[in-house]
Amino acid sequence: MASSYGKTIRKVRLNAGFSQKEVYTEIVSKSFAIAFEKGEYSIKIESFLEILERLMLSFDEFMYIHQGYQTKKIEDLGNRINLASNQNNEALLKKYYDEAKNSRSMKTRVLAEQAHVLSYVIHYRNQPEENKIYPQESVQFLKTFLLRSDEWTFRELTIFNNVSDIFDEQTEEMLTIYALKTIDRYQNYVRLQDELFLISLSILGTTIEKGRLKQAKEQIKNLAAKPYDTFQMLHRTLLLFYKGTVSYLEGDQEKGIYLLSQAFLMLKLDHQEVLKRQFYQVLEKHSTVNVKEIVSQVNRCLAYLEITND
């Protein structure tokens, strides 16, 4: 571990009122502890984690303190790429790719290729009438990276979620299985629950769009098994929408319309007009869906639900 961590450990230890003996006994020697807290020595990660445990501190909280009570700085390439992507900034993503594409660092190269394909994803999102032709060298690089092991960490999961549109259907379906396995392995990792839930919903939306309704039902079942008191209202709304969509596409139109109506009522109560339009756009992608009829029936259900909720 970085030698500079020792100075932060000293600050935390003194503020909490712990002696060196209480923190370091049977982990490292007294002389090592003194040098470590001066920033003169690095330390093995196993020993460092034991020290954090005695200080009753998680590694995440330690890093927050170590960085001056700030989260990871925006100068980090991964954060800059995420920000540019969220802002639909195609030009900036291309700039990041050009700056980092020749890096010898695998981490930087992966981020560079991700920025490259995301610039195309955003372009085609803004120009839906164009044929989608992604840069095959970057696609192949990311495909190879993601297929090298199905024991993903959260890093691979987020990369796949960001770029899943670029892969052929067979590859996307295989990687979706990897992603769902990863989500299942991380289900008890409390710090990532919100991110995992949103990624799950994103994957679910793609699964439905691809017509894999059996797989979608299994995903919905797994998501619905989570305790509802951990859901935000928007999470519940998204899950209701997907439940309703799958029910409708499987032929149970009455149940589908009812669930969709609940979802749209929640959007109305939360003043989510943009998301409402996006929901209708999702429905329009399915040739078997009569969107006008759904809109008409949803509006009738909304009127009834509003009356009964008064």
Rank of each mutant, 00 (worst) to 15 (best):
R80V: 01
L83F: 06
N102E: 13
V274H: 09
E250F: 07
E90C: 07
L213Y: 14
E50K: 05
S31R: 12
L259S: 01
Y120P: 07
T8A: 08
F48D: 08
L52Y: 03
I43V: 02
L142R: 11
A35H: 07
S296Q: 14
T144K: 08
V12D: 09
Y96I: 15
S261I: 12
E273Y: 14
L14H: 10
E151S: 12
H235P: 01
Q215T: 06
G205C: 06
L196H: 04
I45S: 13
T237Q: 02
S103E: 00
M63Y: 06
Q272S: 15
V298A: 10
E293D: 14
M56R: 15
K210N: 04
R155F: 11
L52K: 05
K292Y: 03
Q219Y: 14
N162H: 02
L49Q: 06
I34W: 05
R191W: 02
Q262A: 10
G6E: 03
Y5H: 06
G78L: 09
N290Q: 12
V117G: 11
N162M: 04
V121Y: 08
I166G: 05
K285D: 04
V295S: 09
L223A: 03
F59C: 13
Y124W: 13
Q262H: 10
Y69E: 15
L275C: 07
E250T: 06
K11E: 10
L198K: 14
A225Q: 05
L269I: 14
I27A: 02
E113V: 03
L239W: 05
T206S: 09
L157D: 02
T288Q: 14
K214Y: 08
I9H: 07
L147P: 00
L180V: 02
I166L: 02
N309I: 01
W152C: 00
Y124F: 14
I9G: 05
E151I: 04
V295H: 08
K21F: 01
P128K: 11
F36I: 00
E151F: 11
N79L: 15
L265R: 15
P128A: 06
Q136W: 13
V163G: 13
G17C: 05
L198V: 04
E172Y: 06
S3L: 02
N131I: 11
N299M: 14
G68E: 12
K221H: 04
L83Q: 13
K276G: 05
P135I: 01
E129K: 10
K11H: 12
V28E: 00
K72F: 12
N161F: 06
Q253T: 10
E46F: 00
M266H: 07
Y97N: 14
E99Q: 15
Q272Y: 06
Q140D: 10
D168C: 04
T153M: 06
L283C: 03
M1H: 04
S58C: 13
T230W: 15
T71H: 06
L93D: 10
S296H: 09
V289G: 03
E46Q: 03
D184F: 15
R80Y: 01
T25A: 00
E90N: 15
K7F: 07
T153A: 03
Y64F: 15
Y64T: 13
L146A: 08
T25R: 04
K243T: 12
V23I: 06
N162R: 04
T153D: 01
S103N: 05
